[in-house]
Design a protein around this nucleic acid. Structure first.
Lengths: 216, 216
DNA sequence: TGTACATCAGTGAACGCGCGTTCACTGATGTAC
DNA sequence: TGTACATCAGTGAACGCGCGTTCACTGATGTAC
């Protein structure tokens, strides 16, 4: 028989280390969520928020950029999970757009900090992080293009064109997320207004896509 | 006869003060242009770059936020001048979109630092500055909507819908500016690629707009 | 025009503070036997 | 199972540094007469 431990109190050293690491990333996320650029955070601020001594930081990351990249990475995972959830929902084509938007916005609010980070550092932050986000966004757009192709509603459009359109959509999604997350916490009316506007924007794009004819 | 001065060497006290102020704003712009968030700049860095002692800063701005707002303001002026220039060009409707994009991108590169600031701080920076940029962008979108209405190419569309579409366009313009300005200085091939993609995105939007039917 | 005084943009020194990084350490967890 | 040793996540103190802000100042420009 293996040694039995009181399961609630005991963690292995590795588990404890992972937990501290996650405290650090969550602390950074929380601080950027208060409307400050990631580049303006200090290492000591982050460790303070995480409840750990400054020097402990170096057990997990070489520097702040490395922590930032970890945040981008986890934001990318969150984005991909979103697509998977939408796919799984099996929405009837008729309500596709509105229902997807509702799902998207619910998801954005449920992952407020991740989305604020991605949308916020997308163009403002350090070049390293900016490029990493660009890569994640491109990846997301490519998956989105595959999904749209799979729907078969735009059968005549070349896949490269679908990629272009997906890029436009992703840009619009992120702009909308940034706008909505920037509202003072819980302004349901203004949020509804932005949501309606967001749906209309996507409708314009899909209408354009539906009438698109590729050059031969 | 008024006292004659050697005109090249003499400035009034007011002129000198304005020049120092502009040295401060230009210094801040230059520093943000090196791929750092505005929130991560220090007052001393800016005065150092401007060639002035730190305390001199307070003769011009209360704090860094006030300087940031001045940058937003001047970015807004730059945006409105762009629209005026496009209007003045009297482009034939047929080539409208491509020529406007060419003009826009030339303008973006000619005002690289202003656009990098606006596009970069739009979602990343301090809330105060973010909101000021949002206001400028909305203002710009409203003017754009007026211009498009004036063209008469979309006669059936309600003005509110035009506002929505203009908002979508402005978001796309800024995303494109951010992408292009982020390329390592002077990569003509990649720039052309982004420009082509950017034109296609706008074409999708205008195609959607052309087929738009407002609900009654 | 010339003179005496007021204004005020920019100076330079000083302050206390939080910063990133280093280092030797401690003590709980993990491993070998 | 029990024991002796190795590992290493997190500690706490220390360092030199750049930071924002204050202050009394200086000296050129502007104004009143």
């Amino acid at each position: 028989m293996k040694p039995v431990r009181a399961p609630e109190a005991q963690e292995s050293r590795d588990e404890r280390k992972l937990r501290t690491r996650s405290q650090l990333t969550q602390a950074a996320l929380k601080l950027t969520g208060q409307g400050r650029g990631f580049t303006s955070l200090s290492l000591r601020e982050i460790t303070r928020e995480a409840g750990v001594v400054p020097a402990a930081f170096y057990r997990h990351f070489r520097d702040l950029d490395e922590l930032g990249l970890a945040l981008v990475e986890s934001g990318g995972v969150t984005l991909r999970r979103l697509l998977r959830e939408i796919r799984r929902e099996q929405i009837p084509p008729k309500a596709m757009l509105e229902d997807s938007v509702t799902l998207y916005l619910r998801y954005v609010l449920a992952h407020r900090l991740e989305f604020a980070f991605i949308a916020g550092e997308r163009s403002g932050g350090s070049p390293v992080i900016r490029n990493a986000i660009r890569r994640e966004a491109a990846h997301f757009a490519a998956e989105l293009a595959q999904d749209v192709a799979g729907l078969g509603t735009l059968p005549e459009i070349k896949i490269e064109t679908l990629h272009m359109i997906s890029g436009l959509i992703v840009g619009t999604l992120l702009n909308a997320a940034a706008d909505i997350l920037d509202l003072p916490e819980a302004q349901p009316l203004r949020t509804q207004e932005l949501k309606r506007n967001f749906i209309l924007e996507l409708k314009v794009i899909f209408l354009g896509a539906a009438h698109w004819r590729d050059a031969p």
